[in-house]
Amino acid sequence: MTDRTTDTDHTTDTDRTTDTDGAADLATEVFVAHRKVLFTVAYEMLGSAADAEDVLQETWLRWVKVDLGLVSDRRAYLVRIATRQALNRLRTVKRRREAYVGQWLPEPLITAPDVAEDVELAESMSMAMMLVLESLSPTERAVFVLREVFEVGYEEIAEAVGKSSGAVRQIACRARRYVGARRPRRSASLGETRAALESFQRALQTGNPQDLLDVLAPDVVLLSDGGGVKRAALHPVIGAEKIVRFYLGGSAKVQATIAWEPTVVNGSPALAVYVGGELDGVMAVRVEAARITGLYFVRNPEKLTHVTSETPLTLR
């Protein structure tokens, strides 16, 4: 018997291939369009760019399997997938960070000027705020970030974290009170932070102890993160005089090899620290009433990979 394949059969196969290719192209287009907000959500939840990138990869692998014809709000759906993956990873890294050598600080990101101008975004991802978020449980952090930072509705958050809407409201209220009690009483403006940082930089360069004492609050706290690789204080250094000795205690020869250059980290003015011409760390600050109340010094080389170029971030 002669094998007879009709034109209709050929057309069907071609159409299926075309439909598959078209769906893949659309999935890619939608994912790329929302990639910045997905990265921002994951980073705010994890405090690590490397972990955030892994979450995006996991989100993509799940997204390409979704029938987009059944998705009414693609951004919300993607955020939900990313949140679930970030929650899974956050529970894992929480245990890992408990064994971290010394102080753990978020991975600093060089950000564009428009991030610094977005007060809400800049405050939510400041080193000080990220450390407050670090002390929340994984679910509390996810709920707080989605509700307070990204203004996601309670119903959507409930689907993302696997809780009822009522439970999410309670978690949000509890997390809001916790964060509110620990965030700066009055957020310093961009200009105030920049002015305090410039005074701090000049004092370090001149090596004048009194100039440093003038810009540091009496109860200022220094947290330094060497990750067990670079020298850093294993515990917080508290008090202006102790911090002055910490930074000006080295020899004049060593001090001469250190350069402090202005940059913008996590939406706020910061300093990139170079030793012998090589990047050695990043210093972020918290400013209240025109004086520095918090210093966050990241020296762990694994956390300095995103301070050579700007990382695009957005809330929308």
Rank of each mutant, 00 (worst) to 15 (best):
1 M>G: 07
9 D>N: 07
18 T>G: 06
18 T>A: 14
25 D>S: 10
25 D>Q: 11
32 V>S: 00
33 A>N: 00
41 V>F: 09
42 A>N: 07
43 Y>Q: 04
43 Y>M: 01
44 E>N: 15
47 G>L: 01
48 S>Q: 02
50 A>C: 04
55 V>W: 03
55 V>I: 05
57 Q>A: 06
57 Q>P: 00
58 E>C: 04
58 E>L: 14
63 W>T: 02
64 V>L: 10
65 K>E: 14
69 G>W: 06
80 R>T: 13
84 R>P: 00
87 L>F: 06
88 N>C: 05
89 R>Y: 03
91 R>D: 08
93 V>W: 07
95 R>G: 02
98 E>L: 13
106 P>A: 08
124 S>V: 05
127 M>P: 02
128 A>Q: 12
129 M>L: 10
132 V>S: 03
132 V>T: 12
138 P>Y: 07
139 T>L: 02
139 T>H: 08
142 A>D: 07
144 F>Y: 15
146 L>E: 11
147 R>Y: 09
147 R>C: 01
149 V>Q: 06
152 V>R: 15
157 I>D: 02
158 A>T: 06
162 G>E: 01
163 K>G: 00
164 S>Y: 09
164 S>A: 09
165 S>E: 15
166 G>D: 09
173 C>Y: 09
179 V>C: 00
182 R>M: 03
186 R>K: 11
188 A>H: 03
192 E>P: 08
197 L>R: 08
199 S>A: 15
202 R>W: 11
204 L>N: 04
224 S>V: 02
225 D>C: 03
227 G>I: 06
228 G>R: 05
230 K>A: 14
233 A>T: 10
234 L>W: 10
235 H>T: 11
236 P>R: 07
236 P>C: 02
243 I>W: 04
243 I>V: 07
245 R>C: 12
253 K>E: 15
255 Q>K: 14
255 Q>A: 15
257 T>F: 15
261 E>K: 14
263 T>L: 12
264 V>T: 14
281 G>Y: 10
282 V>Q: 11
282 V>I: 15
287 V>T: 08
290 A>I: 06
296 Y>I: 02
304 L>E: 04
306 H>E: 10
308 T>M: 04
308 T>N: 09
